[in-house]
Design a protein around this nucleic acid. Structure first.
Length: 462
RNA sequence: GUCCCCAUCGUCUAGAGGCCUAGGACACCAGCCUUUCACGUUGGUAACACGAGUUCGAAUCUCGUUGGGGACGCCA
């Protein structure tokens, strides 16, 4: 059997991290088995769906590197087909018209709650004659669901889950205005798209039972279900805007790399022994639904940072320079060239692209460069004297890293001072900060003219 | 309220009855490296929610309790 999966977000907001993980799992699974991964936008909620959200979802998936097969299916465009299925069911006696008002339904729920019973529609129109229909009230179509027995789902993640049919009610398939409900749409679309594996969030587990009944009524083959646990915020509660429930693009803007997100999201709820750093190719080979855990995971930004640091260190210098360039103001090509040349030292010290850009700023600064208060404190009279002292030695070198280091070390030996006593003022003069990449690397990257100029600027300030 | 799911260090997890005096990673603490900050490296603190069973033996199986989560729409 060929594997066909789908990611089916509703465009009522951004693509959050939980959805991104669901998409990733679907994608990994099909890529491993050589199957097909489809994208379907569930835009049947006309009031809440927006084009903006659709754009964010598609851009988010592309940024994450998850490519889908075939055309994007827009669910609302298929509403006619969905409605047809509902009418067919009605014709076959497997569904019926219901004229209940919102008030009646509200009463039912209140009553059920008061009696300690499950909140469900009581099926009062299930066996009534269609001629009893209320004039001027457009009826909904409800599924005539089994009232006894139980529905069993053998979930690939959750195992066998059984629910008694009497707690499930006759769900609405077609609304009064003739538009299909989500339950109808998903089932019809998944069937029509030949989906074999429905891999989605745990919050849909309950829906799976109702959908199963609909498949049965239609006489269709039921796909395999895999309900993956949700992602919680750091406090264990639902994801909120404060932490995590941000769009994928927010993570991009916070300076995380897509490969970081793929690796991190993969490890949330899935493991492969003691492996932590897992390349996407490796993930495709290893990923299996049966290894997905059953418990919800919390977001840990510290670990995300650590992973991102790893991937930044591994990333290509030219690529990092491009990413950084977008976040730097007033950069000229020469400055950017310095950033790229200094990237080996810079990328060692950043957890995010934002941090990388901040740390790279001194390379693009124009003389006289801004000196922070802490750095200024290093430029004491002694410090300045030492700066003035080393300058000739530096000027005499070819400005290669080893030559510069050699020159400074000889100078330090001659003057009987510690390396740090010279290095720190140099750092302040060259970077304007108390921390920076190795000072010899920095000088080599800046080049003779710029480096000596910055040193002179600092030494000269009385 | 009803139904469903879950439960190993602070966090992500390994663990599918003896290999567990419970392993790894992040975070944290201490040391080393060192021109700063990082990186790297060495070591340390830290967990099987609780209670009954089953078994020669349970983190692993069963039941219960507690705790957390999800779902109960003419939303998706």
């Amino acid at each position: 059997m060929t594997v066909v999966t789908r990611f089916a977000p509703s465009p009522t907001g951004y693509l959050h991290i939980g959805g991104a993980r669901t998409a990733l799992f679907n994608w990994l699974y099909t890529r491993r088995l050589g199957g097909t991964f489809r994208l379907r936008i569930e835009d049947t909620d006309r009031a809440r769906s927006t084009d903006d959200a659709i754009k964010l979802i598609i851009e988010g998936l592309k940024w994450l590197g998850l490519d889908w097969d075939g055309e994007v299916v827009m669910q609302f465009a298929r509403a006619q087909r969905h409605a047809e299925v509902a009418r067919q069911l009605l014709a076959e006696g497997k569904a019926y018209h219901c004229y209940c008002t919102a008030e009646e339904l509200e009463e039912m729920r209140a009553k059920a709650r008061a009696e300690g019973k499950p909140m469900r529609y009581d099926g009062r129109w299930r066996n009534r004659d269609p001629k009893d229909g209320v004039p001027n009230v457009p009826p909904v179509i409800r599924l005539k669901a089994p009232q006894t027995g139980e529905t069993v789902i053998d979930d690939l993640v959750q195992g066998r889950v059984i629910v008694a049919n009497d707690v499930l009610d006759d769900m609405v398939l077609l609304r009064g205005d003739g538009t299909p409900t989500y339950m109808l749409s998903v089932v019809v679309d998944d069937h029509d798209m030949d989906i074999t594996y429905v891999i989605r969030g745990d919050d849909h587990l309950n829906n799976a039972f109702r959908q199963y009944q609909l498949y049965q009524a239609c006489g269709w083959k039921v796909p395999l279900f895999a309900h993956v646990p949700l992602i919680h915020g750091p406090d264990g509660a639902k994801l909120s805007k404060r932490h995590g429930a941000l769009g994928l693009e927010a993570y991009r803007d916070m300076g995380y790399l897509p490969e970081t997100m793929r690796n991190y999201l993969l490890r949330l709820g899935w493991g492969h022994g003691d492996d932590e750093i897992i390349s996407t190719d490796q993930a495709i080979q290893w990923f299996d639904i049966k290894d997905v855990g059953r418990n919800a995971a919390r977001l840990d930004m510290a670990k995300l940072d650590n992973l991102n640091g790893h991937y930044i260190r591994e990333a290509d210098n030219a690529r990092l320079t491009t990413l950084v360039a977008g976040r730097l103001k007033d950069v000229d090509p020469a400055g950017l060239a310095r950033v790229e040349r200094g990237m080996n030292g810079l990328k060692q010290r950043a957890k995010t692209i934002i941090e990388l850009a901040e740390n790279a700023r001194f390379y693009t600064a124009k003389r006289p460069i801004p000196i922070s208060a802490k750095a200024q404190a290093l430029l004491t009279a002694d410090g300045k004297a030492l700066l003035a002292g080393v300058q000739p030695a530096l000027a005499a070198t070819d400005f290669s890293e080893p030559a510069l280091e050699d020159a400074v070390r000889q100078f330090v030996e001659g003057f009987k001072v510690k390396l740090g006593q010279v290095a720190q003022p140099l750092r302040a003069a060259l970077a304007g900060e108390t921390t920076s990449p190795g000072i010899f690397e920095v000088m080599a990257v800046l080049g003779r003219e710029e480096a000596l100029g910055r040193i002179a600027d600092a030494a000269g300030q009385a």
